[in-house]
Lab assay of single mutants.
Amino acid sequence: AVSDRLIGRKGVVMEAISPQNSGLVKVDGETWRATSGTVLDVGEEVSVKAIEGVKLVVEKLE
């Protein structure tokens, strides 16, 4: 699937994400809805860990 190529890629949070609410991330110039187990603020760099349906699962870049 086209989304599989995104796993491991870096992105930037465009709309804040929390465990309760999905947000938006931009990866390779495309905007995706994303979820995370932690709070991520706009502008934070993330990496794509998995894909669930049409949402990316991301975590903060260390």
Rank of each mutant, 00 (worst) to 15 (best):
E30I: 05
V54P: 11
L6E: 02
S18P: 04
P19G: 06
G8D: 04
K10W: 08
L40M: 06
T38N: 08
E62Q: 13
R9W: 11
T38K: 10
A50K: 10
I7L: 11
V58T: 02
G53V: 04
G8F: 03
L56I: 10
R9E: 07
V27S: 02
K49H: 10
T31F: 14
V48E: 00
L6F: 06
V25H: 00
A16I: 11
E62Y: 14
G43V: 02
E52K: 07
I17W: 02
G23V: 02
K10T: 11
S3C: 06
D4G: 06
A34S: 05
L40W: 03
L61W: 10
K60L: 09
D41A: 12
S3M: 08
S36L: 01
V12D: 05
S22Y: 08
A1I: 13
L6T: 03
G11H: 00
V48D: 00
V13M: 03
D41Y: 12
L61I: 11
G8S: 04
S3W: 03
E59A: 10
E52R: 05
E30N: 04
S36V: 01
V46H: 01
T35F: 04
I7D: 02
A50I: 03
R33K: 12
E44H: 08
E62F: 13
R9F: 11
G29C: 06
K55S: 14
L61A: 11
T31S: 13
E45Y: 11
G29A: 09
I7Q: 04
G43W: 09
G23F: 03
E52L: 10
G37N: 09
S22G: 09
G11A: 09
R9I: 04
K10M: 12
I7G: 02
E52P: 02
A1C: 10
M14C: 06
K26A: 13
N21E: 11
R5V: 15
E44R: 06
K55L: 15
L56F: 03
V13R: 00
G43A: 10
D41S: 11
D28F: 06
G8K: 04
L40A: 04
A50L: 05
L56Q: 01
K26M: 14
D4S: 07
I51F: 06
E44D: 13
G11Q: 00
G37K: 13
S18C: 08
V39W: 10
L61D: 09
G53T: 04
D28N: 09
L40Y: 03
V46D: 00
S22Q: 09
L6V: 09
K60C: 04
V27H: 01
D4K: 05
K10N: 09
N21W: 13
V58K: 00
L56H: 01
S36A: 09
V46E: 00
K49S: 12
E30C: 05
V39D: 14
L6Y: 05
L61Y: 12
K49N: 05
G23D: 01
V58Y: 00
I17H: 02
I17A: 02
E15C: 07
S47P: 01
E59D: 12
L61C: 05
D4C: 05
R9H: 11
S36K: 01
M14T: 14
N21K: 12
G11R: 00
Q20L: 14
R9Q: 14
T38F: 11
G8H: 04
P19W: 05
K55M: 13
E52W: 07
R9V: 05
R33T: 15
I17E: 02
T38E: 12
T31M: 12
A16G: 09
S47H: 14
D4I: 08
R9L: 15
E44P: 00
G43C: 07
I17C: 05
V48C: 04
E52D: 15
S22M: 09
E30Y: 05
N21D: 08
R9D: 03
D41K: 13
V57E: 05
G29F: 12
S18Q: 11
V58Q: 00
G53Y: 04
G43D: 10
W32C: 05
S36R: 00
E52M: 08
R5S: 15
G11N: 00
G23S: 01
E30W: 03
E44N: 10
D41H: 13
V57C: 04
R5G: 14
E52N: 08
G29M: 09
V25P: 00
I51V: 11
D28H: 06
A50G: 15
R33E: 15
E15T: 08
K49G: 04
G37A: 13
S36P: 02
L24A: 10
G43F: 09
S3F: 04
A16H: 13
S22L: 10
V2D: 15
Q20G: 14
V2P: 15
V27W: 02
V25D: 00
G29D: 15
G23P: 01
L40C: 05
R9P: 02
G8L: 03
G43P: 05
E52V: 13
K55P: 02
L56T: 02
K49E: 05
E45C: 06
E62C: 07
G37I: 11
D28I: 06
A34W: 01
R33W: 15
Q20W: 07
G29W: 09
D41Q: 15
V39Y: 13
I51H: 06
L40T: 03
D28G: 06
E59N: 07
S22D: 14
V57Y: 10
I7N: 03
K60V: 06
V12L: 13
L61V: 13
N21R: 13
E59H: 08
W32Q: 04
P19F: 08
S18K: 09
S36Q: 01
A16D: 08
A50H: 07
A16C: 07
L24C: 08
L6R: 04
V42C: 06
E30H: 06
I7S: 03
N21T: 14
A16R: 14
K55H: 14
V42T: 08
V12G: 02
G53M: 04
G29I: 07
E44Y: 08
V48W: 00
E59P: 00
S47K: 14
A1K: 05
W32I: 05
D28P: 01
D28M: 07
R5N: 15
S3N: 13
I51G: 03
I17P: 02
V48A: 02
V54F: 09
T38M: 14
V13P: 00
V27E: 00
D41V: 10
G43K: 13
G43R: 08
I17R: 01
V13D: 00
L6S: 03
E44T: 15
G8C: 04
V39R: 09
V42R: 11
K26C: 10
E30M: 05
P19V: 08
V13F: 00
K10D: 08
V27G: 01
G37E: 10
S3E: 15
K55W: 09
